[in-house]
């Protein structure tokens, strides 16, 4: 399954980068969203995918009965998801603001507005 997901993540990255290279600012945001999903999946895939063994301990047990999924990448991804949401919100509002001020969503047009 990991090898299959490797190809999926690769396609996600390609889509994300293609979108981020577009001149329309909305496409940039969508690229950003795909990118954060791709990155989360990347960590998830690389750390190994386990079926049906969540990193939870049974009640009263000190240690898991059998092998469980790696909890550390999950903790990393959990924070990454929330952070990505914060960043996205910030980016979206920034874009909206930029659009109001500049009046265009073409990134190439925005390059001359910093003066």
């Amino acid at each position: 399954m990991e090898s299959l997901m490797a190809y999926v993540v690769g396609i996600l990255f390609a889509a994300a980068i293609y979108m981020m290279l577009r001149r329309s600012i909305v496409k940039l945001v969508i690229g950003l969203m795909i990118l954060s999903n791709a990155a989360n999946l990347l960590i998830f895939v690389v750390s190994g995918m386990t079926r049906g063994a969540p990193p939870l301990l049974p009640a009263g047990a000190e240690a898991p009965a059998s092998a469980i999924a790696d909890p550390l990448p999950q903790a990393l991804i959990l924070t990454a998801i929330v952070i990505a949401f914060g960043v996205l919100a910030f980016a979206v509002v920034l874009i909206r603001r930029a659009y109001e001020v500049v009046g265009t969503d073409d990134l190439d047009q925005m390059k001359d507005t910093d003066t």
């Binding site: 998830f44 995918m49 079926r51 063994a53 998801i81 929330v82 990505a84 949401f85 509002v93």
Partner: peptide
């Protein structure tokens, strides 16, 4: 599916909020 219930729930909730956010702005 791959043993990360916390992540799954978080992702679902964030996804919902993201759509709301995009609707509000984009």
């Amino acid at each position: 599916l791959f043993s990360a219930p916390d992540l799954g729930i978080t992702q679902l909730l964030v996804e919902t909020l993201t759509v709301i956010l995009l609707v509000l702005v984009l």
